[in-house]
């Protein structure tokens, strides 16, 4: 960082350069995840997917990207043009700001603010606005329904997410994601999902609560990124393509990018809150700043794999079931967990 600062000798340039760093990561990561998704989906359905572009079709995501870049940007005549144009940018910005507080490694975090976990919950609300804006500006009934479904879903599932974050904060005593990760450093046994690095009696008592919380946060995170079994905003069989029906070309690509970037964000949040973030699962073995990035990305990637697996195996829920799960199952269970964790920590 110091080196770049002296090289460019201009603070504004340095900040722009540093804040563009996660963008490079997002683009590369999305290419890999796209390929994984297509391949995993195909194998689940007993197909083989791309085989012709490169070895087993590894170049296909790049070809797809080039195709999207060349497509015509169609804007419907009866749409609200200004809002139609801005919506993808707002959705993507909402996704992107979350990367500022993700602790990729013990030395790399965009902004080491003390409210990291809280900020992540807040940043998600921008994506909702972007999707609502897209749905409304398209001037299309299906898009509007898709946008509104998405908003109600994301707002409902923000509550379990926030409550799960509160439980982690109660155990670690910090909202700073870097501190939360450091708290869990030193091997698999210290991860919060297994009760954190506390005396073994306390740990054993905490374990059932943390395991339940971990599972709930995982379910809520799938709902937050609008994926099957919670993919109501773009339920193809009901709503054509949902909120992004009218979008094409690069604007569609931005929604796509935002969706996959969000997938990584929620996985990374689960990982850094419950699974030790960048810390190595084997204590001091294979740990260090660079290994940190490796572990962080590998753990998050594991979660994305599970989410892809779920997407291609489970059917979609009904809208009322979705609300039922959020308000009558996940939220009350989290209240039980908060009470339990609080009592154990006080005693």
């Amino acid at each position: 960082m110091e080196f770049i600062q002296t090289l460019l000798a201009n603070q504004v340039l340095v900040s722009i350069l540093l804040s563009a760093l996660p963008l490079v990561f997002i683009v590369l990561m999305v290419l890999v995840v796209l390929y994984t998704e297509m391949k995993v989906a195909a194998h689940i359905q007993d197909r083989v997917a791309y085989m012709r572009t490169g070895w087993h079709g590894v170049l296909q995501p790049i070809a797809d990207m080039l195709k999207l870049l060349q497509k015509e940007d169609i804007i419907p005549t009866k749409s609200d043009k200004l809002l139609f144009r801005t919506a993808p940018f707002i959705a993507f910005t909402g996704t992107y700001v979350a990367y500022a507080v993700l602790p990729f490694s013990s030395i790399y975090i965009g902004s080491n603010i003390n409210l990291g976990a809280f900020f992540l919950v807040a940043a998600g609300s921008f994506v909702v606005i972007g999707i609502l804006m897209a749905g409304w500006a398209s001037n299309n009934k299906w898009s509007l329904i898709g946008g509104i479904r998405s908003a109600s879903q994301m707002i409902s599932y923000e509550i379990p997410t926030a409550l799960a974050v509160i439980i982690v904060v109660m155990i670690t005593g910090s909202l700073n994601l870097q501190d939360v990760t450091k708290f869990q450093d030193g091997g698999m046994g210290n991860w919060i999902v297994f009760g954190g690095p506390l005396p073994w009696m306390q740990k054993l008592m905490l374990m059932p609560f943390t395991l339940v919380t971990f599972f709930i946060l995982f379910v809520a995170s799938i709902a937050e990124v609008n994926r099957t079994p919670f993919d109501f905003p773009e339920a193809e069989s009901e709503l054509v393509q949902g909120f992004n029906t009218e979008y094409s070309g690069m604007r569609f690509a931005m929604f796509y990018l935002s969706e996959y970037a969000n997938l990584f964000t929620v996985s990374a949040v689960v990982v850094s809150l419950f699974l030790g973030g960048w810390s190595s699962p084997f204590g001091t073995f294979m740990s260090g700043p660079l290994w940190g990035i490796f572990w962080f990305v590998v753990k998050a990637y594991m979660f994305m794999l599970i989410q892809i697996w779920i997407r291609w195996t489970l059917p979609r829920l009904r809208v009322d079931q979705l609300m039922f799960v959020s308000w009558k199952v996940l939220t009350p269970w989290l209240f039980v967990c908060i009470l339990g964790v609080g009592l154990i920590l006080v005693l």
Partner: peptide, 26 residues
Amino acid sequence: ADFIAVTQLLIYVGGIMVLILFSVML
């Protein structure tokens, strides 16, 4: 006031704005 700033985002942008938009759009 970092806490108030993030709360502003969470409550106003995430909650109240969505509510206003819902009613206006519908």
